[in-house]
């Protein structure tokens, strides 16, 4: 077989594509929001759940870690992760901000009354637009913010025991 330029080009292009296809078969195809990790939190103003005051980015202090938890009373997995949030509440280097997502005030308060309130700040996002700032995808979601207000982890879905341990470790570093 004679070797010529078009031959080499076409063969290598095709071989390259096939190799990429092979690699692609084993890749995770689900969407992940890791792109947001490492970025600083945007300015935000979100209303409190039970009064008309607003919570702003400037209200975040520089001596604590924050866990922003996005939840709703109609969301079943939120119920599942609730005990973990209740335990995290005891951790004093960490403050928990709850953003109540597309929910009714009454239902939300009933939920917290029944299962306990883990939140240091309870905020409400009635139309879901504020949560877009945190790249919300499907609730529950939790975002861990360090003392410089940088996002260091994002958890999609209910928190589990492993996530719980990760959070404790991250918060207690240094």
């Amino acid at each position: 077989m004679k070797i010529s330029f078009p031959k080499i080009i076409s063969i290598s292009l095709v071989a390259f594509s096939l190799i990429v296809f092979f690699l692609a078969l084993n890749i995770e195809k689900r969407y992940s929001t890791e792109k947001i990790v490492g970025k600083s939190v945007d300015n935000f103003e979100i209303k409190f759940l039970n009064n008309d005051e607003v919570f702003k980015k400037q209200d975040l202090t520089n001596d604590k870690y924050y866990l922003i938890n996005i939840w709703a009373s109609w969301c079943l997995p939120c119920r599942k992760e609730h005990p973990i949030l209740m335990t995290l509440k005891k951790e004093n280097k960490l403050k928990i901000i709850g953003i109540n997502f597309k929910d009714k005030k009454l239902n939300a308060n009933n939920f917290l009354g029944e299962l306990g309130n883990p939140y240091d700040f309870s905020l409400s996002d009635k139309d879901g637009t504020k949560s877009i700032l945190f790249g919300v995808y499907g609730i529950p979601e939790s975002i861990l913010i360090d003392k410089k207000h940088k996002i260091i982890r994002k958890f999609i879905g209910p928190l589990n025991v492993k996530d719980f341990e990760d959070i404790l470790q991250l918060v207690n570093e240094k």
Binding site: Y31, K102, G128, S131, I132, Y137, G138
Partner: peptide
């Protein structure tokens, strides 16, 4: 619409699309 299968925000009926539209 990232929670859907190959739909745009204009086409989707999902909750996510509703929120993005408001934003």
């Amino acid at each position: 619409c990232i929670v859907c299968q190959g739909q745009s925000i204009a086409e989707s009926n999902s909750d996510f699309a509703q929120t993005i539209k408001i934003v």
